[in-house]
Write a protein that binds this DNA or RNA. Structure first.
Length: 646
RNA sequence: GCCGGUGUAGCUCAGUUGGCCAGAGCAGCUGAUUUGUAAUCAGCGGGUCGGCGGUUCGAAUCCGUCCACCGGCUCCA
């Protein structure tokens, strides 16, 4: 007999060799039907795998992340089996579960390709295979046998994977006729997979390395109930409606032009309004915290970037130098504002009494992004950062850093980004050549970030290899409508640039010292921030941000005078307001204002004009009834502090 | 940059296997309508079918190439 400990601390005895599924059945049959996998001492296992020793177990269903992972991983195997059927000669590589579904990377036989048009037949085959209700059988296999198997079938990818595994730690899984190198775990049987949708097909390099073969990656998602697929389809539809590219066009916020160039956004009047309001908001917060605004040009001499290290690092992959026609000097579009700000620092004879020096600029930078990378406002080639550089003494670093964390969180909270993730971006330990600066300085910088975050009680996670080339970062990540994570706010500690630019201040000891630098941008860039903001609020901006806050809709042109007087009163009170004076019916005016997502629509006709009232229609809510101007101003006032909601 | 897909009027989209002057709705313009909580009616204008080259008696449709966009990969100062 062995002791099985449950999550609630209860212990029960079972025969050795009992499976997770047996245990589930002993608790309840209805539970057993839902179990997808189990964890045994915190390791996720097949529910059909025998447990031979005392263990703590948890049962996972569709409601657990582990359960979903198991479900999707098994679905990936069904996808592979279907492809093996339909595309003889296909080579399999890896097929993991991901956040939303799964994928399988395959190498198709010469001359074959798969496109979305092939999905229906693959999906059909997968469901057919699932219905057989076969089990996923686990089998230990020696390294030699595993290699022999894949030499036999001629799959060099699996051989390479096996090369990296320990003998005695290798397992195959078999379902039906399909055998795959896999550490599991898998579902109790295939028929749990009730609906399948392949979502897209893409190229993916083997092992993520662009010098290696490009494989075909097929993405999919699957569900234990058909109704859940419906839900997923609705989510996808909803995401399309939130897409900032669609809303940006519909609400006339920004545009792109082939003639201007890819990745170079044009901000239309309404988008510019929105952006300027965001800028004013941040400028005011920064003023309160002792920042000073500066301005610098959009380009600088090549030597500037040689000093900063940018040129050596990115010069050849960037927009190429611009030459002066007579002197032949080389200038580069600026990829970052920091070199310019370092030069501003040097304009002053600074003492320790002057620090921290906080220089802020809404600086437009230009970076060459590969054509395939461009994406609406999320990834562009010219963008404006809400940049600032804080120059401080080493012992001021942590307090400054913490104040910036507060500022970023203030901004995010105000704009409704509540489910951001704070990522500590460190060096790639396998690729030290990517970075500048001494190990000692990197360690100091990394420690400063971790300590400041911890003292702020900020929950963080670490990503290696995501640091900037000159220093580690604390990045604030927010998801777009499709669930993709984007870096918005960022705070970076930098010991290198002050050294490279030989920045100094006079200390209390009358000696020269080197300052430390913090790079920070709470929004990151206006472009990306606005993109994510649009998707988060679906274009329904809070009143203080709405490019057009109020639209007055007269019932007919008899009431134009009154409508205009309402407009004037609101303008005097500082609101952005216009009148729809077209010879259209009121229903039409409401519709058009609603399509433009105007927060306050004021209907004025005979009744309102006589009683000096307005009939309020709040977008997203409906008719609020008639109130006098004072009542309207109260309602507007009450919403001006509101945060973004969707 | 790589893989796959897409590109027809300002917007959303039709255009069967290549074949009459390339269509619709919305938007726009003109006129009529003076309107009460999500589309008033009528008339009119608008497109080198993404660009260039080719195949063909004939190309929006087939082929090549370039550009842009979409989804990924790689990259990301």
């Amino acid at each position: 007999m062995i002791n099985i400990t449950f999550p609630d601390g209860n212990v029960r005895q079972y025969d050795a060799g009992v499976t997770g599924m047996d245990i589930a059945k002993s608790l309840s049959n209805s539970l057993a039907k839902k179990v997808l996998s189990v964890s045994v001492n915190d390791e996720v296992w097949d529910s059909m795998r025998p447990i031979n020793e005392d263990a703590a177990i948890k049962l996972f269903t569709w409601n657990d992340e582990e359960g979903k992972n198991t479900f999707w991983h098994s679905s990936a195997h069904l996808l592979a089996e279907a492809l093996q059927n339909l595309y003889p000669g296909v080579k399999f590589t890896i097929g993991p579960a991901i956040e939303q579904g799964f994928y399988y990377d395959i190498d198709l036989p010469e001359g074959k390709s798969i496109s979305a048009g092939d999905f229906p037949k693959i999906e059909k085959k997968m469901l057919e295979l699932a219905k057989r209700k076969v089990t996923f059988d686990r089998q230990d296999i020696s390294k030699a046998d595993a290699l022999a198997h894949y030499q036999n079938v001629g799959n060099e990818y699996k051989q390479e994977l096996i090369d990296g595994l320990e003998d005695g730690d290798i397992t195959f899984y078999t379902q039906g006729d399909f055998v795959d190198l896999c550490k599991g775990p898998h579902l109790p049987h295939s028929a749990l997979v009730k609906s399948v949708k392949l979502t897209n097909v893409a190229g993916a390099y083997w092992r993520g390395d662009e010098t290696r073969p490009q494989l075909t990656r097929i993405y999919g998602i699957s569900f234990p109930k058909a109704a859940l697929l419906e839900e997923y389809n609705n989510f996808v539809k909803e995401a399309k409606e939130r897409d900032h590219r669609k809303l940006g066009q519909q609400l006339e916020l920004f545009a792109f032009s082939d003639r201007v160039g890819a990745g170079l956004p044009l901000w239309l009047p309404k988008g510019t309004k929105l952006r300027n309001i965001l800028q004013d908001f941040l400028m005011e917060e920064q003023r309160k915290q002792g920042y000073q605004m500066v301005m610098t040009p959009h380009l600088g001499k090549k030597e500037l970037y040689e000093t900063s290290g940018h040129y050596a690092k990115y010069g050849k992959d960037s927009f190429q130098p611009i030459n002066t026609p007579k002197e032949g000097e080389e200038y580069l579009l600026k990829p970052m504002n920091c070199p310019h700000h370092c030069e501003i620092y040097k304009c002053f004879p600074l003492s320790y009494r002057d620090l921290p020096l906080r220089l802020a600029e809404f600086g437009t930078v230009y970076r060459y992004e590969q054509s395939g990378e461009l994406n609406g406002l999320l990834r562009v080639r010219g963008f404006t950062q809400d940049d600032a550089h804080l120059f401080c003494m080493p012992d001021q670093l942590k307090d400054e850093f913490k104040a910036v964390i507060d500022l970023v969180i203030l901004v995010f909270t105000k704009l409704g980004f509540t489910d951001f993730k704070a990522q500590i971006s460190l060096r790639d330990p396998d690729n030290p050549g990517k970075y500048i600066g001494s190990d000692e300085n990197w360690e100091k910088a990394e420690r400063a970030i971790m300590e400041a975050s911890e003292e702020k009680g900020l929950p963080t996670f670490i990503e290696y290899g995501e640091a900037a080339f000159y220093g580690p970062k604390l990045d604030f990540m927010v998801k777009d409508a499709l669930g993709r994570s984007w870096q918005l706010g960022t705070i970076q500690v930098d010991y290198s640039l002050p050294e490279r630019f030989k920045l100094e201040y006079i200390g209390a000891d009358n000696q020269k010292h080197r300052p430390v630098m913090i790079h920070r941008a709470p929004f990151g860039s206006f472009e990306r921030f606005v993109a994510v903001l649009i998707e988060n609020c679906k274009g329904n901006f809070p009143l203080w941000l709405a490019p057009e806050q109020v639209k007055v809709l007269p019932i007919s042109d008899k009431f134009m005078d009154y409508a205009n007087s309402v407009k004037t009163q609101l303008e005097t009170a500082g609101y952005r307001v216009s009148v729809d004076g077209r010879a259209e019916k009121i229903g039409r005016k409401i519709r058009d204002a609603s399509m433009q997502k105007i927060p306050f629509q004021l209907i004025v006709g005979e009744k309102e004009a006589e009683s000096q009232q307005v009939s309020i229609r709040r977008h997203g809510e409906g008719d609020r009834g008639s109130v006098p101007m004072s009542g309207l101003l109260e309602q507007l006032e009450a919403e001006m502090d509101g945060v973004v909601t969707a």
